[in-house]
Design a protein around this nucleic acid. Structure first.
Length: 828
RNA sequence: GGGGAAGUGGCGGAACGGCAGACGCAGCCGCCUCAAAAGCGGCCGGGGCAACUCGUGUGGGUUCAAAUCCCACCUUCCCCA
């Protein structure tokens, strides 16, 4: 269908504008600009190949924010990049024999084209791709700084192993016992791995959340829960007939007299000592039990499997009561969590209760729920507070107080004391895969573990490595592996692990600031000027992973003096909702992906952007519908018809100056302009970003203009609206806005203009509708001048026949008056 | 099991203690047209001829006034275990 003269001909209008914006570099931002800075960005995408409208929702939202802030006079930095390392590239290599680098680069090229196609305004000079050696070189550099500061270390540990992806995973990347990427059940293996000591920053990561007013509460709560700080008591236990000891951690030391057994993780070091003192039969049983759990994941052991254990035959001595209690090994205690040993208090802990029931262990109640005392045996554990019973010297004390008193007592006796415990653990960053940043460490026969010196960075990822999906590709590459020791010059082997891709996405927002710096990851001056990020926009799936890692890195950078100001990288955070199609998440396998190219070609980019912003508030999940976008195509056509024929006449009517008002229609038209202007500003300053309401108000304005175009096309108010409309459309529908603007005779892009400042004079109305209620029910609506006084309003209300009929001569008990809104007469 | 968020016409949503359903989609009627599409105008929660009346998941409460605040319950979704 050929575009008619009275429709917005997006096919011939949108692309030329994108080219012109590019040519004129209108979106570049520099730190020497005198305007106040505003740093906003969306989470960088993984270049999977094609963008769909779900991506578009994210970038359109960010773009609308960036454009509005620019129009409000800010020096807006809005950059873009690619999270370009990761498994899909390797999987493509396995499936189709394509080189991961080639695959990734062609995806980036395509997606970059699509991002430009969406009309999103980025400062492309700052673009980064994390697989670029000039980027990952600084990954390695940062890794070495962490290493020097004792924050990167290698140790053998039981780790999460994904048998499908053939690599280890960080705890944060295991969701319900499954690999976050491929969904396969994770196994446990003992491997020597690189960790980052994020736990050193636990308290600062917690404290920092308190200052993040611009973050969703949910996200902060989830991070707090993930870190999982708890305060309790660590106490030391002796094993009968052995020199071996172990420690337990408990938040309920007040129940110490209720311990009737202890449980060790089968991997606990003290288990070896126990095996040497118990009977051969017992030792063998422990061994068999431990072996049966070897590859079981933590989730299986602690949640999925029934609680099972084996009595070791050994006994431990309660450090306080000196009672002798049996030692068990059990599946539900994991060596990596806490001390790897748990004191069993079945009367007051659910898991212990379950275990004691199963193995017929005594249940000793030591906390009484009421002051009355124990009346009946427990049928379920009591986990609340109460008064201590059967607890030696501490009997009769309130449990809350007993926790402190007992802790003091243990400390004085040298057998324990208060400690803080965290649920999260150090960040495992090794990956046994090819497409990632090589860890810059070599192993020398003579010198051991040696850091690659800075001047030998980057350690380049070798090309032409066979990728089979089995084992680590780099470990097999002799050319890569064999090297010389930077310290002694002797033969050495390179680390074959690459870094978790979350490493590079933890600091990319700093590289944007100084993307081409080849002497440092960024210059501190740039960080000082731009940080922190004023507004960060991205999906809620990153609440723990990426956002926690980035906060950790940023605090480390702060300690190194590489950034200044706030210790938090992201001042404000916004999670946009997903886009569904036919009620389902878009995915290639389901075949329900709505692509950018098709949509742009069929409906135009401005219509797509408007639809995505209009359909729901941005934080909600929205449904893509073909009817819905049609509505926005129609809207743009209405804009065109109500503006385009009048542009010549409107050229001389300034949108910066209120026009003369000749009629009520004039007034409401001018008011409609300012209602939109106010909404546009309010939605960014409140950071609510509910542009759906702004666009609804734009609809109202355009509807009013459509009427005026037919009735009073010569009125100054109408022509004022024609000239103002593009300024109101600019953040959401940038192409049509610039096209109309240029046809109004402006030589420079509308995106360098200021917003229309909402003016109170224009927002005023000359008549308000006063709602009159009798006993809270609406009985009349009266037109009245704004600012009408209470007495007058009530007099008008009482004069209304309908109101009088309802009052039925009864006495007015109370009069409620809400200025310009409502009168409520309470009668009886 | 614990915590959180949400429930409004046929649909997406608006209203953040004060006119419920803005705006859009779908639908219906009309104009235009040979006809259709597009466009333009109108109608569009239920009941009632009407005055009115009922209505924001369910039940209570606070208030002159509740979609909005509080309590309980139901349902859905998301986290954690």
């Amino acid at each position: 269908m050929a575009p008619m003269a009275d429709t917005y001909d997006f096919r011939n209008i949108e692309r030329p504008w994108q080219e012109r914006w590019e040519r004129e570099q209108i979106y570049i931002a520099d730190s020497d600009d005198p305007r106040p800075k505003y740093y906003t960005m969306e989470m960088l995408p993984y270049p999977s190949g094609d963008l769909h409208v779900g991506h578009a929702k994210n970038y359109t939202l960010g773009d609308a924010v960036a454009r509005t802030m620019r129009m409000l006079g800010y020096n807006v930095l809005h950059p873009m990049g690619w999270d370009a390392f990761g498994l899909p590239a390797e999987n493509a290599a396995i499936a189709r024999g394509i080189d991961p680098g080639t695959w990734t680069k062609s995806n980036i090229a395509n997606m970059e084209r699509q991002v430009r196609l969406m009309g999103t305004g980025y400062d492309w000079r700052r673009e980064v791709a994390t697989c670029d050696p000039e980027y990952y070189r600084w990954n390695q550099w940062l890794f070495l700084r962490l290493y020097e500061n004792g924050l990167a270390y290698k140790r053998e540990a039981p780790v999460n192993w994904c048998p499908h992806d053939q690599t280890v995973l960080a705890n944060e990347q295991v969701i319900d016992g499954r690999c976050w990427r491929c969904g396969h059940l994770v196994e446990r293996r003992n491997l020597s791995q690189w960790f980052l000591k994020i736990t050193d920053y636990a308290d600062r990561l917690l404290a920092g959340l308190d200052e993040l007013d611009g973050w969703p509460e949910r996200t902060k709560t989830m991070q707090r829960n993930w870190i999982g700080r708890s305060t309790g008591v660590t106490l030391k236990w002796k094993i009968e007939q052995s020199d071996a000891t172990f420690e337990t951690f408990t938040t309920r030391v007040d129940t110490i007299f209720g311990v009737t057994f202890v449980v060790l993780a089968p991997e606990h070091p003290a288990v070896a000592a126990i095996k040497s003192i118990v009977s051969k039969k017992n030792a063998a049983a422990i061994e068999t039990f431990a072996e049966s759990l070897q590859s079981k994941s933590e989730l299986e052991r602690t949640s999925l499997m029934e609680k099972e254990g084996v009595a070791t035959g050994a006994y431990a001595i309660n450090p306080l009561s000196h009672e002798r209690v049996p030692i068990f090994v059990a599946n539900y205690v994991v060596a990596e969590y806490g001390t790897g040993a748990v004191q069993g208090v079945p009367a007051h802990d659910e898991r212990d209760f379950e275990f004691a029931k199963k193995y017929g262990l005594p249940i000793a109640q030591v906390i009484a729920q009421s002051d009355v005392g124990v009346d009946a045996p427990l049928t379920e554990p009591y986990t609340g507070e109460g008064r201590l019973i059967a607890s030696g010297d501490f009997t009769g004390m309130r449990s809350e107080r007993a926790r402190d008193v007992i802790a003091e007592h243990l400390k004085a006796a040298g057998i324990g004391g208060k400690t803080v415990h965290y649920r999260f653990r150090d960040w495992l960053v090794s990956r046994q895969r090819y497409w990632g940043t090589p860890i810059p460490i070599v192993y020398c026969e003579r010198c051991g573990e040696v850091a690659v010196p800075d001047d030998q960075l980057p350690v380049l990822l070798p090309a032409d490595v066979p990728i089979t999906g089995e084992g680590s590709p780099l470990a097999r590459d002799e050319q890569f592996i064999n090297t010389t020791c930077p310290s002694c010059g002797g033969p050495a082997r390179r680390e074959s692990d690459t870094m978790d891709t979350f490493f590079e996405s933890s600091w990319y927002f700093l590289r944007y600031l100084d993307a081409r710096n080849d002497a440092a990851p960024w210059a501190i001056d740039h960080a000082r000027h731009w940080m922190n990020v004023d507004q960060y926009i991205g999906g809620a799936e990153h609440t723990v992973l990426h956002l926690l890692y980035s906060r950790f890195f940023y605090k480390f950078f702060h300690d190194q003096g590489w950034v200044s100001g706030s210790e938090e990288p992201f001042q404000r955070l916004f999670h946009q909702g997903m886009v569904l199609y036919n009620g389902e998440k878009m995915s290639k396998s389901r075949g329900n992906v709505v692509g950018i190219d098709e949509t742009a070609d069929k409906n135009g980019v401005d219509a797509m952007r408007l639809f995505l912003l209009y359909v729901t508030p941005p934080e909600d999940t929205s449904d893509w519908t073909d009817e819905g976008i049609t509505g926005r195509v129609r809207f743009l056509n209405r804009v065109w018809r109500a503006s385009e024929p009048f542009l010549a006449a409107a050229a001389d009517v300034s949108p910066r100056e209120l026009p003369p008002i000749a009629s009520a229609e004039d007034r409401s038209l001018v008011r409609a302009v300012h209602v939109v202007a106010k909404s546009m500003v309010d939605e960014v300053s409140s950071r609510r970003f509910h542009f759906n309401t702004t666009i609804a108000k734009l609809d109202e304005l355009v509807n009013a203009m459509t009427t005026a175009a037919q009735k009073t096309p010569d009125s100054r108010a109408f022509l004022y609206a024609v000239h103002a409309l593009p300024l109101l459309l600019a953040p959401y529908a940038p192409h049509i806005a610039d096209e109309l603007w240029s046809r109004l005779g402006h030589a420079t892009s509308i995106h360098l203009e200021r917003v229309i400042e909402p003016e109170d004079a224009a927002l005023e109305v000359d008549e308000i509708t006063l709602v009159v209620q009798v006993n809270g029910k609406i009985r009349a609506r009266i037109n009245a001048p704004p600012g009408i006084a209470e007495d007058e309003a009530i007099a008008l209300a009482l004069a209304d026949p309908n109101v009088r009929a309802q009052m039925d001569g009864k006495e007015v008990r109370k009069r409620i008056f809400v200025p310009d809104k409502l009168v409520n007469l309470v009668v009886a």
